[in-house]
């Protein structure tokens, strides 16, 4: 565990908490893409199935459980509790165009052709593009609420920090994972336009 990895995890956790609190406090999920949230639930479920097969550390297990619980909690709030506020007219990104290529790619390019490894690979590929329905929704409606922007900034920063962690690990431990690195870079690049707007508006805006 290095500082970049820890900051990345904190940023990820922060993003999820911001989203849950926003929905809970405003009793509304307006502006949030349910499709992205469903994709994230698929990502965590596929990746964290190893919770039952390989124990790493208490930190690792607890974080996995928190991400799973928060993700399903968000889905519950969006699709059941505050269903009336869900903005589905603007949430129209076709997620099969993301899921099917990721399934195919994970079957073709993986570290080992075994069920859990393929699920892990699939989750890495899908995570890299899972935010697209949300970014599409923001561009469609013109602007995101500031709290939604903070959520997106924290969520985008998480993978960017992981890239720094991989650079560090490459030099310090001679360790690298090509699949995670390439997907992580794709994921971070997708946020670049948003990062630019967030930072310039944050500094010069109002």
């Amino acid at each position: 565990m290095n500082v970049f990895r820890l900051l990345g995890d904190i940023s990820h956790l922060l993003a999820i908490i911001i989203l849950l609190l926003k929905i809970w406090k405003t009793r509304s999920c307006a502006g949030i893409s349910g499709r992205s949230q469903v994709l994230f639930a698929v990502v965590y479920t596929a990746r964290y199935l190893d919770l039952f097969t390989s124990y790493i550390s208490a930190y690792n297990s607890i974080m996995k459980l928190v991400f799973l619980a928060a993700s399903y909690g968000t889905i519950y709030l969006m699709f059941i509790k505050f269903k009336a506020s869900y903005d589905h007219n603007h949430d129209t990104f076709r997620i099969e165009f993301l899921i099917l290529p990721c399934v195919l790619l994970s079957l073709l390019i993986n570290h080992e052709f075994s069920p859990l490894e393929i699920l892990w690979t699939f989750s890495i590929y899908l995570e890299s593009v899972a935010i697209l329905p949300q970014l599409f929704m923001v561009s469609k409606t013109g602007e995101a609420e500031s709290i939604t922007s903070h959520y997106l900034f924290a969520l985008g920063s998480y993978r960017a920090l992981y890239i720094l962690n991989w650079i560090y690990r490459y030099y310090a431990e001679s360790h690298y994972d090509v699949i995670a690195i390439v997907a992580g870079i794709v994921q971070t690049v997708l946020y670049c336009d948003f990062f630019y707007l967030y930072i310039t508006k944050g500094i010069y805006g109002q």
Binding site: D9, H12, D50, N60, K64, F67, Y162, H175, A180
Partner: peptide
């Protein structure tokens, strides 16, 4: 094949 040190990442 992924090692335990890779599996540590979330």
């Amino acid at each position: 094949k992924r090692t335990k040190s890779t599996k540590d990442e979330l």
